[in-house]
Design a protein around this nucleic acid. Structure first.
Length: 187
DNA sequence: AGACTGATATTCT
DNA sequence: GAATATCAGTCTA
């Protein structure tokens, strides 16, 4: 597998936009990216805004690696490290399930496709992503990240934050029914 | 459908 | 002690 040269070393919002429609597999299980959020080092809403900590250390490591953290003490959330400078990354918020549907349904405890990966915590539960995956490279097993195509890309404000709420760095595939929440209607 | 609540790691004040 | 890049359950209507 190979990525376009310099793909990950650009502004996180640009990378997030381009990743919509790509395929993400962990241990052969996963689907197409239909929703992503970008977090920049100098963005007040980012975990990295106040510098490195034990938790966010992976975000200051090399691009094209994973950053996995515990959310609300309960869920895992999967991020891709990217950017021109250290400390930026992308939160994988939703997938359209394509591979390992039975396994995902079993891990999630429910079978409806629409609810399998429609949220960052759900994605990690369905793909069995945990702390063990933190700081792992995305170009080697168990990860597989391969280019794909989106029908169209829409953007909107990010979800669940209280700072920089108007920065439109949430990206999704136009018309997808697998997103965690609908995007603001265009026009 | 919408509002509220519990779970509870990590960071910041 | 308070807030948080969340989710599922349960209640009210």
């Amino acid at each position: 597998m190979s990525w376009p040269s310099g793909f990950w070393t650009r502004h996180p919002a640009t990378v997030a936009h381009d990743l919509i429609g790509w395929e993400v597999l962990v241990g052969g299980v996963g689907g197409r990216i239909v929703e992503i959020e970008a977090y920049h080092h100098e963005d007040p809403a980012s975990h990295t805004h106040s510098g490195p900590t034990p938790r966010n250390a992976a975000m200051f490591g090399p691009p094209a690696h994973a950053y996995v953290y515990r959310s609300y003490g309960v869920h895992w959330c999967l991020n891709f490290v990217c950017g021109e400078t250290p400390g930026s990354g992308l939160l994988i918020r939703a997938l359209e399930p394509t591979h390992g549907l039975d396994l995902m349904a079993e891990r999630r405890g429910r079978a409806e496709l629409r609810g399998l990966c429609s949220g960052p915590g759900k994605v990690c539960q369905a793909l069995a992503v945990t702390r063990e995956h933190n700081a792992m490279p995305l170009d080697r097993a168990p990860f597989m990240v391969s280019p794909g195509k989106a029908r169209g890309v829409v953007a909107g404000p990010r979800i669940g934050i209280s700072k920089a709420v108007d920065v439109p760095w949430r990206f999704g595939e136009a018309g997808s029914t697998f997103v965690s929440r609908p995007f603001p209607k265009a026009s």
